[in-house]
């Protein structure tokens, strides 16, 4: 400890040079890192309009948005009742069905299992909603995780009803 050298001007120059160098390297590396993020052409495809007039109650269609499947399910009254009768205490990721839909008849959600990104199969599983074949996650008629490794409910994308028959996703 006693032989610790006193700070001098050269130490200051070393530190300043290293700091300036680090900033320079950081600035040079950032473009190399950021080029991997979604580019302008990918971002440009960020919204999709869907005509849902031909979907009958109980049916579900899958559309592509940002390269991902989106489930648009026209739910029957029975399915809506089933989703709404569940107590929140039973849910791994508690969310009310009312908060997951804009119109109770239409469930619009990303058709991607929140575990590792597979596409769940509809009208399957122990809760009559969706079942992911990859690692066995079960979702209910509101797309909420009920059993299996997925941590959260299937995601609800941003969407609006442009009119009665058209949904704009994104």
């Amino acid at each position: 400890m006693s032989d610790k050298k006193p700070k001098n001007r050269r130490d200051f120059i070393f530190t300043a040079t290293a700091a300036a160098g680090a900033v320079g390297v950081g600035a040079a590396v950032w473009p190399l890192v950021d080029q991997m993020n979604p580019d302008a052409s990918v971002k440009a495809l960020a919204s999709t309009e869907v005509d849902v007039s031909s979907v009958k109650p109980g049916q579900s269609i899958t559309v592509v948005w940002r390269g991902k499947p989106v489930f648009i399910k026209r739910r029957t009254q029975e399915e809506i009742d089933k989703a709404r009768s569940v107590s929140l205490d039973e849910l791994k990721h508690p969310e009310k069905d009312e908060d997951r839909v804009k119109n109770p008849e239409w469930l619009v959600m990303l058709g991607i299992c929140t575990h590792l990104g597979c596409v769940p199969l509809s009208d399957k599983g122990e809760y009559d909603g969706w079942f992911c074949p990859c690692h066995g996650s079960h979702y209910d008629t509101s797309g909420r995780i009920r059993k299996g490794p997925a941590p959260i409910n299937m995601e609800i994308p941003e969407y609006v009803f442009l009119n009665e028959n058209t949904i704009k996703i994104g």
């Binding site: 993020n37 979604p38 575990h115 590792l116 990104g117 597979c118």
Partner: peptide, 25 residues
């Protein structure tokens, strides 16, 4: 899809890392 989604398990920054790996959504 499954392997890149492994990184989404990282708290807070996971989603960003996955998007970065994909270069898209």
């Amino acid at each position: 899809t499954v392997i890149t989604n492994l990184f989404s398990a990282i708290p807070f920054i996971g989603e960003g890392i996955t998007t970065w790996l994909w270069g898209g959504y």
